[in-house]
Nucleic acid binder design. Structure first.
Length: 502
DNA sequence: TTAGGGTTAG
């Protein structure tokens, strides 16, 4: 009971007081509480325990953390450790400290999955020395590294703008005791293609190694999709030709990739002709094909054609999926009217479909956009009663539109409602902080400052621009003391303008 | 973490 209370204090956010910490006595109680998690734990208990431990890690003195962790009367499990690492995602150094302390735990040994998480975190911090040290330790313990581990590392290199190093990682797998196969080959190709490095994937990897790994339909599809992602449909078509020449039969996925590629490149005519060709060649058109068509026509405002395709699929005996409805509803919102979108929503419900998070978010955004705030809020309530919890996007949309409409209070009250499954992200803070400037009130600027403190506390680094803006605002409204505090924070975050020195 | 469809505005 008391644990729940503590939890709530720690995780709930209040705008005006901003981020509550455990008071020292409660903290001590928490540490000494012997049964706050028992041997047999439900998923809910694991989640709660993960939150508690993450808080403990964040608030403990680094020197005493190891002792605190080892002293806890609870059985660590791989699931629990993974959850804690996820909670500490934005606190890389702390997360790695936690991981390291547990490596020396008397009765717990890390799983491969936790190693992968830790490697992911170190990679995100671009701390490659730690990445490879962890890989070596995994190997020493004979629990990896696996192809998944290498996929994670490659992905991190690509995200850091080093695709060539990602390729090297793939090529070095065997040296680290991990066999390569067609699977891992396709994975690295996909990682490169999804980051729009298709040229490199094709020339430096695919062309060189497709013989060795016996490239299959999946490999070719990945490359074709890569070209489509950068709107180079002729190259994708070449790949299609090439695979046929090599005796591989394109699948429906191949065709759908090309079709989507045409729409993405704005080649409506080609898309339509390609669709007709698919029919002529008696390719087994599926629900993805139709969804692509509905969405493709809809986004360019061809609502009638989108509707026609939608109706046609039913005639062909192919049932729309929730994704198909989502596509239709989205384009109705954007290019037709939100009223018709709502009608479509009700129609799908009547037919027995269960709207998902995307469905709700699309309708809610449409309603806000049309200025129908009340109805949008009704839908937010409706999704909750439907057992579909609003996520960070739902809240961000609501906050953004309320603030844009000048109703800062409503925006703030939406922010306060955000909870466990929908914690604020960088976007949320940016929108809110900007909104604190519209009324030009001194109190608002203090709130902006507090939001800034809170976002840093949660591992988000504000832009220099945001810092300066808040700083100037506070100075102009006579909040000198608070401005000083913000300036110290700015320095800590390495976001200080050059002329400043503390 | 081997491939294809549906969520953002500025």
């Amino acid at each position: 009971m008391l644990r729940r209370k503590i939890n709530r204090r720690v995780t709930k956010t209040k705008t005006n007081t901003v981020f509550l910490h455990l008071s020292p006595p409660l903290h001590r109680f928490f540490l000494s509480c012997p049964n706050f998690i028992t041997q047999s734990t439900s998923a809910l208990d694991t989640a709660a325990a993960a939150t508690d431990i993450a808080t403990l890690v964040l608030e403990s003195d680094p020197k005493s953390l190891r002792g605190s962790l080892h002293g806890l009367q609870l059985q660590f499990t791989p699931e629990l450790v993974d959850k804690v690492l996820k909670r500490l995602w934005f606190h890389g150094p702390k997360a790695l400290q936690f991981f390291k302390h547990l490596e020396y735990h008397p009765s717990y040994a890390h799983s491969a999955s936790s190693f992968d998480h830790a490697i992911d975190i170190a990679g995100r911090m671009r701390d490659y020395k730690t990445v490879w040290a962890l890989v070596a330790r995994m190997r020493a313990r004979r629990i990896g590294p696996s192809s998944k581990t290498f996929a994670i590392i490659a992905e991190r290199f690509v995200a850091a703008g080093k695709p060539d190093r990602a390729i090297k990682v793939f090529l070095s797998m065997r040296e680290h005791g991990c066999p390569q196969d067609l699977h891992s080959f396709n994975t690295i190709l996909d990682i490169l293609c999804k980051s729009k490095r298709v040229e490199m994937a094709y020339n430096n990897l695919f062309k060189v190694l497709r013989g060795k790994f016996k490239a299959d339909v999946v490999s070719y599809n990945i490359i074709a999709n890569g070209w489509c992602l950068i709107k180079r449909t002729p190259k994708a078509l070449e790949v299609l030709k090439e695979m046929v020449e090599r005796g591989l039969t394109p699948t429906i996925t191949t065709y759908n990739i090309l079709l989507k590629g045409y729409f993405r490149a704005g080649q409506l005519k080609e898309a339509w002709e390609f669709f007709l060709q698919m029919k002529e060649r008696e390719v087994e058109i599926d629900v993805v094909t139709y969804t692509t068509m509905v969405h493709g026509f809809g986004v360019v405002g061809e609502i009638k054609r989108a509707r026609k395709v939608f109706n046609e699929m039913v005639g062909e005996g192919i049932l729309p999926s929730t994704a198909t409805y989502n596509a239709m509803i989205q384009v109705l919102c954007k290019k037709d009217s939100v009223e018709n979108a709502v009608l479509m929503f009700e129609e799908m419900v009547k037919k027995g479909y269960v709207p998902n998070l995307t469905t709700y978010n699309v309708v809610i955004r449409g309603l806000f956009h049309a200025g129908n705030m009340d109805k949008a809020m009704e839908f937010i309530e409706r999704m909750k009663t439907d057992g579909c919890e609003p996520n960070v996007q739902t809240y961000n949309v609501a906050i953004r539109y309320f603030c844009d409409a000048g109703d800062v209070e409503k925006g703030l009250s939406m922010f306060e409602k955000m909870g466990q499954g929908s914690l604020p992200n960088l976007d949320t803070y940016n929108v809110l902080i900007s909104a604190m400037f519209v009324r030009k009130k001194s109190e608002d600027l203090v709130v902006a400052g507090k939001l800034l403190l809170e976002m840093v506390d949660r591992g988000f680094i504000p832009r220099k621009f945001t810092f300066n803006r808040v700083l100037n605002g506070l100075l102009l409204t006579g909040n000198q003391a608070f401005a000083k505090e913000i300036l110290r924070l700015q320095s800590k975050c390495g976001r200080l303008p050059r002329q400043f020195k503390l």
